[in-house]
Amino acid sequence: MKILVVDDFATMRRIIKNLLRDIGFSNITEADDGSSALPLLQNGDFDFLVTDWNMPGMPGIELLKAVRASPKLAKLPVLMVTAESKREQIIAAAQAGVNGYIVKPFNAVTLKEKLDKIFERLEN
């Protein structure tokens, strides 16, 4: 499984990478905002996208919309991991077609739970 982790803070990308590795995913690529992530997604064969919301350049919500609007990427599962925790934001992300939403600070158990849930849904 090839995963793209998008966050403007390198520390958070490292944390997520370490957690994903613990769960058993090791094929991980990083990007620091939506505009650098999108070409990677378009030209790569990613199976999963983990993205932050608040990033300079293209924020995560825009990236999510761009992914859903792209014929090639429309079905790519997207997990949002973000400190944005306003009710209206979570609703906006749901409407834009997010597959899971984790609020920071989070823990390893939550990440595993959400990943399992997303994969379970995809299989059914």
Binding site: D7, F9, M12, I15, A83, K104, P105, A108
Partner: peptide, 15 residues
Amino acid sequence: SEVLMAQDYQDLTGQ
């Protein structure tokens, strides 16, 4: 793992 997760302060305080 606790040490790893504690480093999330860098992202949160950075924002």
